[in-house]
């Protein structure tokens, strides 16, 4: 399926950022077969150590995470990781995160020179790092970030949207106008788990974290429906997909492709089997 700007996926099934590392664990475990795309861990200009534990908590039909963008930095990704992606059938799309628009521009400018990088997914919506500028909730800031990145790369640019806004379609239209080739939706919902034993949230800091897993699928489908109706660029559906039927739901709704996220943690073979089953559907993708 065509995502845009020369990016075509062999399968509509992708693995979501933050649930698949940079693909090497799945490669070792034999779980890459048939995937259309891998969306890497959020990558920043400098290495980041991530947040202090605990970083994850379990909630009904889902989990909370507050990893804090642990990643080795774009230089390691470009020079050490990218060569290892050569020969993979799955397209590797690097998820890019930052604190300022200039951060995003610097990372994307570096990635633009890396042939193994098939595209860029802009993470303007990570709920787990504190910074003054929350690009993903302000249509003008979201558009400005997209436009700034668009100016420094020829690669396909997919903007990953946060659902923690009043009108996700407004943000979607803004990044479409800013030059995005596609949007992916949704990132995690803001959530919290309380520890009555300790009289405070389970996760540290403010206690808020990103909620993912089957719990969010109905919410994500509603968000994707609004985006499909509002946009002309492709929408990549994400949110609680834990079976091939879940993936079919998003595709029938109008998503061009889908990403499997949290389920990769407890069903590591799901993405590959989902890709194989959708291929058998023929046409459904």
């Amino acid at each position: 399926m065509v995502i845009g700007r020369g990016l075509t996926l062999e399968s509509p099934v992708g693995a979501a950022s933050g649930t698949f590392g940079y693909g090497f664990e799945a490669e070792r475990m034999g779980n890459l077969a048939g995937l259309g795309a891998i969306f890497t861990k959020g990558t920043t200009i400098e290495p980041r150590p991530g947040n202090a534990p605990p970083r994850i908590a379990e909630v009904p039909a889902g989990m909370l995470n507050s990893i804090g963008l642990q990643n080795p930095g774009v230089e390691v990704v470009a020079t050490e990781y990218a060569p290892r992606w050569r020969g993979w059938a799955a397209k590797v799309i690097v998820n890019v995160a930052g604190s300022t628009i200039e951060d995003y521009v610097r990372v994307c400018r570096r990635l633009d020179r890396v042939p193994e990088v098939a595209g860029i997914e802009l993470n303007i919506s990570c709920p787990n790092i504190a910074h003054g500028l929350d690009l993903g909730v302000d249509p003008r800031a979201a558009a400005a970030c997209t436009r700034a990145v668009r100016a420094v790369t020829e690669k396909a640019v997919i903007v990953k949207l946060t659902p923690n806004v009043t009108d996700i379609a407004e943000i979607g239209r803004a990044v479409q106008d800013g030059g995005a080739d596609a949007v992916s939706a949704v990132n995690t919902y803001l959530g919290m788990k309380w520890s009555r034993a300790r009289g405070k949230p389970v996760l540290p800091g403010t206690g808020t974290a990103g909620l993912s897993g089957p719990a969010i699928k109905p919410l994500a489908m509603a968000a994707v429906a609004r985006l499909v109706a509002a946009l002309t660029i492709p929408v990549i559906g994400i949110g609680g997909i834990a079976s091939t039927d879940d993936a079919r739901d998003f595709l029938e709704l109008g998503a061009r492709a889908i990403q499997i996220g949290t389920a990769n943690f407890y069903l590591p073979g799901l993405a590959a089997s989902c890709a194989a089953e959708l291929r058998q559907d023929g046409g459904a993708a």
């Binding site: 649930t19 664990e25 534990p53 970083r55 994850i56 990893i67 943690f265 590591p268």
Partner: peptide, 12 residues
């Protein structure tokens, strides 16, 4: 979380 290095939950 996962047991194989992708969720980054078990940071030590």
């Amino acid at each position: 979380g996962c047991g194989f290095g992708t969720c980054l939950g078990c940071s030590i």
